[in-house]
Amino acid sequence: MKKIKGNSVSIGVAIGKAKIINKHELYIKNKKILKSEIKFELSRFKEDVKFVINELDKLIQDYTYSKENRDILESHKLILQDPEFNKRISILISEDQNCLEQAINTYFTEAIDIFSNVNNKYLSHKVNDFEDVAYRLLSHIKGERKDILEDVDENSILIMENISPSFVTTVFDKNIQGLCTERGSRNSHSSIIARSMNLPMLVNTMGLLGNIKDGEDLIIDGNDGYVIISPTKSVLKKYEAICKKEKNIQKVLLS
């Protein structure tokens, strides 16, 4: 049994199995294209951006939890519709003869660099948005879209480094027991939603990912702010009793 301290952002006890969610790394190849391939690469760019914008439109339509999250997705659309983005990619492809994925990777790496260095707390968190959009576009171009929440079930407690803005939508559509992240804050959008859905959640749980294996038994104690890995039988029993009590209270409150 291991116990790690975190900050509780949504109270309650959750008992389940650890499901570690990793964004899978994209391998970007740096390849020069031939002059004869420029036209094809440019048309691919147009189509792929169109595809991802349509995808964002669908998410915006389906997403009813909050206006704030819809605004985030709208701003992701603007990043893709940016005329300077278009211009820069066209130059990288036609003049520098970069292949599409390299051109896009270059653009977003530069953008993320600028925002990481900007001395303004309202802008520095925009890095997340640019990372999100870059991942969405590049994973589509490379045809490496995988549903990383595929094996999640109603027994799962999600373990993540952090929840990115556009991922919030998908995460809370799943039927799960609770969440725990290594970074994050009380006022993040995911924390607010977790509270509104009565899902126990911890953030700022140092050393979380290094100490948990996928599928391990897990307890989130959102009342005292602990995650308990592979609990002993007696500890499990204690928390099962608390969990049952909380569920009964909820039932009474909701009836």
Partner: peptide, 28 residues
């Protein structure tokens, strides 16, 4: 973006395209 005219914003020695989200945000 709703208008057809070009739109630029200048802040001291920095000049950006006012229809570009990247540009407007980097003005900080």
């Amino acid at each position: 973006t709703k208008y057809r005219s070009e739109f630029r914003i200048i802040k001291s020695d920095m000049e950006i395209n006012g229809k570009s989200i990247m540009g407007v945000m980097t003005l900080a």
